[in-house]
Design a binder for these strands. Structure first.
Lengths: 226, 226
DNA sequence: TTGAACTCACTGGTAGGACCACTTAACGGT
DNA sequence: ACCGTTAAGTGGTCCTACCAGTGAGTTCAA
């Protein structure tokens, strides 16, 4: 009953983890920058290096950082990564995983597009338009794929539902990683056409049209996989 | 160019992690059992305890095990846990998180019910029926909530899409954890009624009816939150 | 001058041993 | 028969030394 041990149970490891998360979220440690070296953090916070290491490992598993031997700990902030790990373990077969991811996208993304049509901001629409323009003139297939993903991510953000946004981002990235069937050149131009139509529906603030345009786009793109 | 260092880059930590995952997945380490003590594993595999610890930490972050001070490392196998961590960080506000999770459920789960109606097996239907019966006679609210979640999980499994199943499981568990507004007694009996109707649609292999019944159920249950 | 190899000072990764903190169950005194 | 003590097990932390990649600066030969 002595007040020396109230329910304040907090372990050094948890403290370190929370501190780091806080630093990342408030922008002190921006995406793309590196954390201080493990030894420095340990001394600065009067902790063992082991504790700092464990915190870093946890951050890595949660997709917040990427640890690179000989380099350092880079802030990546990719919340979709843990989901990708889970799905890769649950569905070891690339083909089946892609199939189920496609099904999930087909269910989620048209709805996101419809919501985005209602909630879109001028700023968000400008960004989408810029993405479309960039995709039109992009010749490199690799960068085209990145732009394509960014377009869909941006729509998910506009919709304002972070739960669905994270889910979409996960399956989209997973699809991009595991498909050798990367887009052909004609695939890019076709994708651009669909993107333009989706963007038009968003600008018109027409949910039904956005939903339909997104559905058509996905069915066309995902159909290439079968 | 010497063949002594081909692309076999494998670190002891990765090896340990892979070994443990394999042991868990092939059933050698069943859910509910405990891993050997860290010191034992370290000696058995001729590794440092640090390495074993890091592997265990990673497994914990991925939802495969639960580490408990003074007790041991228990195999839990809850793939939804990483997603929950991510969403709790992205949406710190309980209220907003619940709202978006509800929206996600409303989108995903009716579709899962419809698919389950087509793909349901006799065995799966029996399990669902047993769950319904148990819920009807359960008086404890805590256990009722568990049964409720299990019912929805079972339907997701029947639908055969693990991607959507994991997503649903995540948002459902998250909802149960963060709501103080736990079900009242009348809520349980009402839920049971909906469950029976959903089950009937599944038995009848009627996708449209299943989708509709699930939608009604969710709208009723989630409506209590607002 | 140029350029390629080397050196060295970082980074994270691993090792081993000691000790702390929590849990449980067996033990022993009352 | 009860309850506090003890001891042995577990994970948690620390320290210190060393191994292993990386990159930049230096050196030395062409």
């Amino acid at each position: 009953m002595s007040p020396t041990k109230p329910p304040v149970r907090s372990s050094p490891a948890d403290d370190a983890l929370r501190k780091l998360i806080a630093l990342i979220e408030d922008g002190t440690l921006a995406t793309g920058t590196f954390l201080p070296a493990e030894r420095q953090l340990a001394e600065r916070w009067s902790l063992s290096r082991v504790v700092v290491r464990e915190a870093a490992r946890k951050l890595e598993q949660r997709g917040l950082v990427s640890i690179r031997h000989g380099i350092g700990v880079e802030v990546t902030n990719n919340p979709a990564l843990p989901v990708q790990h889970t799905l890769e373990r649950l569905l070891p077969s690339d083909k089946e995983r892609l199939r189920q991811c496609a099904q999930a996208r087909l269910l989620i993304e048209p709805e996101l597009a419809a919501t985005a049509a209602v909630r879109a901001t001028p700023k968000g629409l400008r960004a989408l338009k810029a993405n479309c323009v960039a995709l039109a003139s992009e010749t490199d297939l690799e960068r085209s794929a990145v732009l394509d993903i960014a377009f869909h991510d941006a729509i998910a953000d506009l919709a304002g539902n972070k739960v669905l946004a994270v889910m979409l981002r996960s399956v989209a990235q997973l699809g991009r990683l595991s498909r050798e069937v990367t887009l052909k050149r004609f695939g890019v131009t076709r994708a651009h056409g669909y993107h333009v139509r989706i963007l038009a529906a968003l600008i018109a603030a027409d949910p039904a049209a956005a939903r339909k345009a997104m559905k058509l786009h996905l069915e066309a793109a995902l159909g290439d996989l079968s």
